[in-house]
Nucleic acid binder design. Structure first.
Lengths: 235, 235
DNA sequence: GATCCAGTCAACGCCGACGTTGACGTTGAT
DNA sequence: ATCAACGTCAACGTCGGCGTTGACTGGATC
């Protein structure tokens, strides 16, 4: 008579400790299935039984690869922010770049990484990780802190662009940011990798709109009387 | 002995049938409380007990004003689309307007209505009503159909702008739309009525970026050579 | 061919949230 | 005073989904 209780938690821990290629690969598959569904239906609406079906497993088997539904989410979106912050820090440290160049770079890098890590980053955006709404967990707090850090770097790039005289100073940095990265982040609602456009093409197109506008020369002539929009009301 | 069972459903129906000013007002309060929380935490994460506390009521009392949690959501976002579609249809019917003017108008109207109906519209955006994710209910189908209708009208305005030679033809209409309305819709993450900027100011500023770009004249001159500096980071 | 282990599965306990119940004040009309 | 309607509330039934259990299978190792 053996009392070896199976205890899935312990078995998961030992399996993860072994770190075999097979286990890691299968785990990635499970995370991928979860990410797909989280993207499609949202985290809360997604049932673990659906994740299991998507991955071709039984629901209980999920727990052989992840301790909880939360863990799936955290592992999916975990590296997203770190990657972005690392890229921004590298740009900031490069003295040869202007603010505009840094802004352009991070913009393109973000979009291409959205594409590469699809759908992980879009899950991150969709689930509003930056909001308090998530939870009061330590993990959520960390995410929020890192998000604010990244945000501050973007604002700094923009301020640099304004101080250099490249970006319009009649628009507050925050509005510059929300316009530019609004276009970018909204891609989570419509962009699908493998479609007619690459992430890079989308990014460059949006960048050209942000910097130069969407009008033709003729259209610009038609629209000529364009007073500074904010000073009229704020001043 | 009377068998008058209280049956909250019937009592709600009779109360709603009477349509007294008090009832309507209180119901609006409940909807407002629900909208606030839906906006903050998302529909699924919001508990009816929280809605009740926000409205200063007992949870059961909610059912005197709404038959279900779903009904709260539907009534909150119900008019949003209809208003937008009506505005777009009016613009379309006005022969005196060019495509660019229609696009500009609907852009400003949408933003100001976001502000006026806050937070209802933002709930609509946040809950991704256009996605299949919601449900297979008849209501969801209708919402999706109406959304596609509105979307088609926006695309038509943009195509008109391109055909008139005002908007750049090297950018597909869909990208024009996603850039412009990406900026707009992303406001649901940061815009708060009563802040330093009105909805109209935000809309006009974004419009000026979309049409003319965010660069100064000097910045435009600097950007002309447009050195490809991406290799500094990626390579 | 016996033993062991990775991987899987049907089944259970549990909990939290929705929607309902039936009764309890309170108000205003008769 | 009586009655009806209004608005409210503590308490319950129910159900869906999470996380766990303990046993089963098929292949590898001795």
């Amino acid at each position: 008579m053996n009392d070896k209780s199976s205890n899935i938690s312990k078995r998961r821990r030992t399996a993860r400790a072994k770190d075999s290629a097979d286990y890691v690969a299968k785990r990635a598959e499970v995370l991928g299935a979860a990410a797909t569904l989280f993207k499609q239906q949202g985290f809360h609406s997604t049932r673990l039984v659906d994740v299991a079906r998507e991955a071709g497993l039984d629901r209980a088997t999920i727990y052989y690869y992840a301790g909880s539904k939360e863990e799936l989410l955290q592992d999916i979106v975990g590296g997203v922010l770190d990657t972005a912050i690392a890229a921004a820090e590298e740009l900031r440290a490069n003295d040869a770049l202007t603010g505009m160049q840094r802004l352009h770079q991070i913009f393109v890098i973000l979009m291409t990484s959205y594409e590469e890590n699809y759908p992980a980053t879009f899950v991150y955006i969709q689930e509003q990780m930056h909001q308090v709404g998530v939870q009061e967990t330590e993990w959520a707090q960390l995410i929020m802190k890192r998000t604010r850090l990244f945000d501050r770097m973007l604002i700094d790039f923009i301020k640099e662009g304004i101080e250099d005289g490249d970006l319009r100073s009649d628009i507050p940095p925050r509005l510059h940011e929300n316009a530019l990265f609004g276009m970018l982040n909204w891609t989570h609602r419509w962009f699908v990798p493998g479609g007619s456009l690459t992430g890079r093409q989308v990014a460059e197109t949006f960048w050209s709109i942000y910097t130069g506008g969407a009008l033709t020369d003729a259209g610009r002539a038609n629209a000529l009387p364009s007073p500074p929009v904010l000073s009229a009301v704020t001043g």
